[in-house]
Nucleic acid binder design. Structure first.
Length: 652
DNA sequence: ATTAGGG
DNA sequence: CCCTAAT
């Protein structure tokens, strides 16, 4: 820019260092906004297997958790290790996973949340069968695209120009996802396994419709399923202003407590966290709320559950906010109630209970499983969402879980004891009986993504996605890049935003367009950049705490480096915020800290021998410029300091 | 909110 | 990339 040149470029094209604070004040406001955008750049879906999918207005999973990275397996292992270490914490996650899969005889009362995951998990636990069933279940659920976006005939990439719209869209979508459950054929046969035979006839489960609308409010009407009918719900549901980019989760904790008050069909809650700025915060949850043991309630089933098809669902499930429902109790009390027909219409329809023989009949009514953390870009397609959820679920189901039995809160470890010996055979004990899903400690759970799970792979591959592959020629093992869309936010590109789109794959320096031949590497770069786009990770956070996800790794592409170098040459090394604004204003995921860090590594890279460098090679020319600029600005900085020192001395 | 550095 | 201290 002319003005800039006049004001201050130094000889080398370097700009004269601005006065310390002067240059930044004017942009303060805008910058803040940018940050928000960054945080929104990828939606983190926090899905408890409980059927709640949460949205996070920010990016965070670390590369180590990324499934789509180049070393998926390694990554998976990594997360697994953590998981094992955090075995304890996992149990504390109150993912209210209470859902009910009709076929499996699971029903929920307090939590009108029906999720694939539950079904899948239950199915797997119960059947101990292969993954196909589990997956099938999960897939079914997510698969129901028509339900996902009732309004539209086709499923389009979930994205929108406006962040708030995106958010809403996701909310709605997820809403649906959590609500619909399509019984996978494979599971049908498993039904009987669930219940313990009762005397003569075993309870039979009427064939349920294929699609069960589990307790849910139908927000098909309001495009923004987020808007709530007011009333008490307001407290738990996302407020309309969710548009605010940082819509935060909700979740488990909130939900847990809110559940009792939920009205018919409500199963999803969310809250916004206005003050949220720091990524970390968003994962914070009150410890107290997450300490609930993961256990599923079991129901002493006096009668066959049967027919409460849709009925069970909506009514039974949601309508009764049980007061008795408390956090710790996991609502077991309420569950029981319902079972006996006290509460829901479900139970009432059942045949009277009769304990004809020594068989104890149990019915699992709710199940809670560890949370799943999924990060997916807003530009991801429904198809990719499917896969991600599926993978995440599968990862958990794939062997990482075992079932624990609890009696009055205490774990029963002796597998050889009979129910009679344990006391479980007594009616009065049944309500104290609980089950829990626990991470397998002894052995490593299956990696999220590995050869052992052909299903996973197969899912990835065939899935036809409504998306535009970046470069057909580039075959990568990465899951897929879903963010191959246009710039989410058409930048009002002005000066020097070299890196525009969020998926830096296409940083568009003017010269980039037709330089493809020369820079064949660019093709390779693309997939890499977006590799992290789809990251699914079963969330095993560290101990007690809040799941602070590490951001996914996003290697700088050559063009990004170029832009960075250019900006630093001009602005210097101490003005990262300005660098960000100048060259990465549109790269939502690059923060000034990132840029600073990158510069640091670039300098280091430039100093070491080419053989020692790793990753995508950075053109030597660029590295040379890095060194030059670094030297120049270091010198400038030194000078400045001297000057300041002398100034202060004079004053003194 | 930014910067600067160590990890 | 993360985390912090210091601005």
């Amino acid at each position: 820019m002319v003005l800039q040149n006049r004001l201050g470029y130094g000889f080398n094209g370097y700009q004269v260092p601005p006065t310390p604070r002067a240059t930044r004040s004017p942009r303060r406001g805008s910058i803040r906004k940018k940050v928000d955008d960054n945080q929104m750049c990828a939606f983190d879906l926090l899905a408890t297997v409980a059927g709640k999918l949460l949205l996070e207005g920010q990016v965070s999973p670390s590369s180590s958790n990324t499934l789509t990275g180049k070393e998926p397996c390694a990554v998976a292992k990594d997360s697994i290790k953590k998981e094992q270490l955090d075995y304890d914490s996992a149990l504390k996650v109150p993912s209210n996973l209470v859902s009910r899969a009709p076929d499996l005889h699971f029903s929920t009362k307090e939590f009108p949340v029906a999720h694939i995951d539950d079904c899948s998990i239950l199915a797997s636990v119960i059947t101990s069968s292969d993954c196909s069933e589990k997956i099938g279940c999960a897939e079914k659920l997510v698969n129901d695209e028509s339900k996902i976006q009732p309004g539209s005939s086709k499923v389009e990439p979930l994205r929108a120009r406006n962040a708030s719209n995106v958010t809403k869209a996701y909310m709605c979508t997820l809403d649906k996802l959590a609500v619909r459950y399509r019984k996978p054929p494979a599971l049908i046969s498993q039904e009987n396994c669930v219940k313990v035979p009762l005397g003569t006839g075993h309870v039979s489960f009427p064939a349920y419709q294929d699609v069960v609308n589990i307790a849910v409010r139908d927000d098909d009407e309001n495009s923004s399923g987020c808007t709530q009918p007011s009333t008490t719900k307001t407290a738990f549901r996302p407020s309309p202003r969710i548009g605010d980019r940082r819509i935060r989760k909700i979740l488990a904790s909130k939900f847990w407590k809110a559940a009792p008050k939920l009205k018919d069909g409500e199963y999803f809650t969310a809250e916004t966290k206005p003050g949220y700025h720091n990524r970390k915060n968003c994962y914070k949850r009150k410890r107290s709320l997450r300490d609930y043991p993961l256990k599923k309630r079991i129901l002493y089933d006096g009668r066959s559950l049967s027919n409460s098809d849709g009925g069970i669902t909506s009514e039974g499930i949601s309508s009764s906010p049980r007061k008795g429902f408390s956090c710790d109790a996991s609502g077991s009390g309420a569950t029981l109630h319902g079972a006996f027909g006290t509460t829901s219409g479900v139970a009432s329809r059942h045949t009277p209970f009769q304990s004809r023989d020594s068989h104890v009949k149990l019915r699992i009514r709710s199940f809670k499983v560890p949370e799943l953390f999924i990060e997916i870009p807003e530009t991801a397609t429904v198809g990719s969402l499917k896969r991600n959820v599926m993978e995440a679920v599968n990862a958990i189901l794939g062997g990482g879980l075992r079932v624990g039995v609890l009696l009055q809160g205490k774990k029963i470890r002796d597998d050889n004891k009979t129910l009679l010996q344990t006391g479980l055979a007594h009616d009065n004990k049944l309500d104290a009986l609980g089950f829990s899903l626990e991470p397998t400690v002894s052995q490593a759970p299956p990696p999220l993504c590995n050869e052992d799970h052909p299903l996973l792979l197969s899912c990835n591959a065939p899935q036809p996605l409504t998306r535009y592959p970046p470069a057909p020629s580039v075959v990568h093992n990465i899951v897929e890049q879903s963010a191959a869309d246009a710039l989410p936010d058409p930048p009002l590109t002005s000066v020097g935003s070299f890196v525009e789109s969020d998926h830096d794959s296409a940083p568009s320096p003017p010269d980039m367009s037709d330089k493809s031949p020369m820079d064949s590497r660019a093709l390779v770069t693309i997939p890499e950049m977006d590799a992290e786009a789809l990251a699914v990770v079963p969330m095993r956070k560290s101990k007690r705490s809040e799941a602070v996800q590490r951001r996914i790794r996003r290697p700088f592409s050559v063009s990004e480096v170029e832009a960075l170098v250019h900006a630093v040459e001009k602005l210097g090394t101490g003005r990262w915020r300005d660098v960000k604004l100048l060259a990465f204003d549109n790269a939502k995921h690059r923060t000034y800290v990132d840029l600073k860090d990158k510069w640091k590594t670039l300098v280091h890279t430039a100093r070491i021998s080419p053989q020692q460098r790793r990753g995508e090679p950075v053109p030597q020319v660029l590295l040379d410029r890095v060194l030059d600029a670094h030297a120049y600005w270091s010198q400038q900085q030194a000078k400045q300091q001297l000057k300041q020192q002398s100034d202060t001395c004079l004053l003194l």
